[in-house]
């Protein structure tokens, strides 16, 4: 029995390694097709990510919202929900934060308090948008994928309207976003770097909380039950709709905080694509780690590094920086594929 267990674990790791190799091979082929020298590209990504302390700083800045989004998504995935709407939830968080700051900026309140209210507002914004998806699913019978997708578009449109309408810069609105906030409303950073330790701490705490929730609490276990067999969970007396709604709200809270950090610690204003795709990237991280909170943090860090590492590709090699997306996406696909292959082989 134990023999079989260990052998299946080793075969699992073997298949994972094979998946990584296949993803690298696939990405290499894509590079060859686009006429680039793969070795040079990989070297560039590595130096682009780790070449200097500033680069490492950039990775950590990108890691923060990705951690928050992934942490939230682990909860919705556990409840069996595909929270595609996370992008819109991040966006609404950013909008609410910006709103709170704009309202409180002219007052005499201390800047620290305004920033704190900004975070709170962001969390509420994300919860509001996620709550809508949940209510639509539970009471309107609208699948969360469709509801989320629709609300993503609404969120984007809302951002654009705010930037070019009520919140436009003095003079003429522009794609560069709203008027930047004054320095005292910026989240404090390490001297000489862009990283805000407070924001990073929030991301790490979020993933830690999710890890503990899912591992050792009644809440986490019931969420798991709802996700794996909602009918049986209901018959056992678990209020399934309440748990689904809570998963949405908690995910929205973390997504909203991600949006808030984007405003308070990174851009210091509302810009059109404020979510930077961290919601979808978080989905890929969650799928890649098979919804295990323990592995989410390092994998999210790796993905953040790939994102940062590919930024200089257009300048140095005239390649599009979306190449990192090809690697990330193919990694997820091949890991899922190899998992399917392994199951098929071990079953027969």
């Amino acid at each position: 029995m134990t023999m079989m267990k260990t052998s299946s674990r080793w075969s699992g790791i073997g298949f994972q390694a094979l998946a990584v190799l296949l993803a690298l091979a696939f990405t290499t082929v894509v590079m060859l097709i686009s006429g680039a020298d793969p070795l040079q590209v990989y070297q560039n990504i590595i130096t682009g990510a780790l070449g200097s302390p500033t680069k490492v700083d950039d990775i950590l800045v990108a890691w923060t919202p990705l951690l928050l989004a992934t942490a939230g998504l682990l909860l919705t995935f556990t409840a069996g929900l595909w929270n595609i709407g996370i992008e819109g939830q991040i966006t609404l968080g950013a909008i609410f934060t910006t709103w709170a700051l704009r309202v409180l900026q002219p007052t005499d309140l201390p800047p620290t308090l305004i920033v704190a209210v900004g975070f709170l507002a962001g969390a509420l914004g994300g919860m509001f948008w996620a709550g809508l998806v949940g209510l639509l699913k539970i009471f309107g019978n609208v699948n969360e994928i469709f509801g989320g997708l629709g609300l993503n578009f609404v969120a984007t449109a809302l951002t654009i309207w705010l930037i070019f309408g009520p919140w436009k810069r003095p003079g003429v609105g522009s794609m560069s976003g709203t008027e930047p906030f004054p320095l005292e409303l910026w989240l404090p950073t390490l001297p000489g770097f862009r990283l805000s330790p407070l924001a990073l701490a929030m991301g790490i705490i979020a993933i830690a909380i999710v890890y503990i929730l899912l591992r050792g609490t009644y809440f986490g276990l019931r969420l798991k039950a709802v996700g794996r067999n909602g009918r049986a969970a209901f018959l056992m007396g678990i209020p399934t709709t309440r748990y689904m709604l809570m998963a949405f709200l908690l995910c929205g809270l973390m997504a909203g905080l991600a949006g808030a950090t984007q405003v308070l610690a990174v851009y210091h204003r509302l810009i059109p694509s404020i979510s930077s795709g961290y919601g979808f990237l978080g989905m890929m991280v969650a799928m890649l780690v098979n919804y295990q909170a323990l592995w989410a943090a390092p994998v999210a860090l790796f993905f953040a590094a790939l994102n940062i590492g590919s930024i200089q590709l257009p300048i140095v090699l005239k390649l599009d920086s979306s190449l990192s997306g090809v690697l990330q996406g193919s990694l997820v696909l091949f890991v899922l594929l190899m998992d399917g292959v392994r199951r098929r082989l071990t079953r027969s």
């Binding site: 276990l221 794996r228 067999n229």
Partner: peptide, 22 residues
């Protein structure tokens, strides 16, 4: 029953909740 969950987890789910942590 809930596939993927162990017998222990099933019995925990069936019991009254006792505190926040299991």
């Amino acid at each position: 029953l809930i596939p993927g969950l162990s017998l222990t987890e099933h019995f925990i789910l069936a019991e009254e909740q006792n505190g926040f942590f299991i």
